[in-house]
Design a protein around this nucleic acid. Structure first.
Lengths: 149, 149
DNA sequence: AAAACAAAATTGATATATCAAATATATTTG
DNA sequence: CAAATATATTTGATATATCAATTTTGTTTT
């Protein structure tokens, strides 16, 4: 049972780390490219990898909620990075395809994204990251236990 | 130098852990009380602890940006949890005081907040949390290095 | 096939994050 | 002290998160 004080600072750090990382990564992306957000990139790449996914499945794959996916997809379409294609067989299955512009963007941006992660984790051993990851996994599990309601 | 694959899942887990924790904590707070958010609570408690802080200092203390603080404070005042008092000596110094209703809320909600954190960290050793915390601290540091621009 | 039901997707409302721009206030300089 | 400068605060615009409500689409039942 961790001490209360440690818990408090741990959660503070958790919030700050993710926010600082996002800010840092977003800044680097903006420097090289226009106005695409990390979340839009994430969704775009997921659709490129698995174009057959429904919105619902995309949401689960990228750990976001359905409403956000709807809006992010709308933005990507509006930016011309994604094409919405009809699919008569099943309207609920994906009707999305990454456009050539979207493909180009993903290719160009890939090394930046990788570098962002690399720099953010610099000076941390693989073992430490594994432990931190397992801590995060346990938190996710704890927060999703039915019995805790 | 951590492997790329590990980095990817680590950042996914980081995002998911904070989101699931917030969702879980928010749900428990809503169950016991009305419509106060975690962020509003955080700011309210900070002002209670250190009423002399300026908006700027509050923002730094709770790791948020100035614009958000302005809006959160407005909401807290609108809800009657915070009083805005004039201060003729120095307009930029804090002019905020937690209202009796705000004090009551903080007292009542404290055990819930503590329990949320406790449950979220269940089954994790203190040492593991310390390591995870140090990893987060290093990320924060890495993302704020001037030289990485 | 029509009705009932289930699941998926969208929309609306509100909160927060972020950046930029505009104001307001304080401090320093001349 | 007035002007210039610096710092703090607010506001506007846009993106995302969340929840609730609604609409759309699909499946099942009869």
């Amino acid at each position: 049972m961790p001490q209360e004080k440690l818990s408090v600072t741990f959660f503070y750090f958790l919030e700050k780390a993710i926010r600082d990382y996002r800010q840092y990564a977003q800044r680097n992306i903006r420097a090289g490219f226009g106005d695409i957000t990390l979340d839009q990139l994430l969704v775009l790449r997921m659709i490129q990898d698995q174009p057959e996914l429904s919105h619902h499945q995309i949401a689960e794959a990228v750990f976001k909620d359905y409403a956000s996916i709807t809006r992010i997809v709308d933005l990507l379409v509006r930016k011309g990075l994604l094409f919405r294609l009809g699919n008569d067989r099943n309207r609920r299955e994906s009707e999305l395809t990454v456009s050539p512009a979207g493909d180009d963007l993903l290719v160009a941006i890939q090394p930046i994204v990788a570098k962002n992660r690399f720099i953010a984790l610099q000076g941390i051993s693989q073992e430490e990251i594994e432990i931190a990851k397992s801590v995060l996994a346990k938190i996710i599990e704890n927060c999703n236990e039915k019995s805790n309601g």
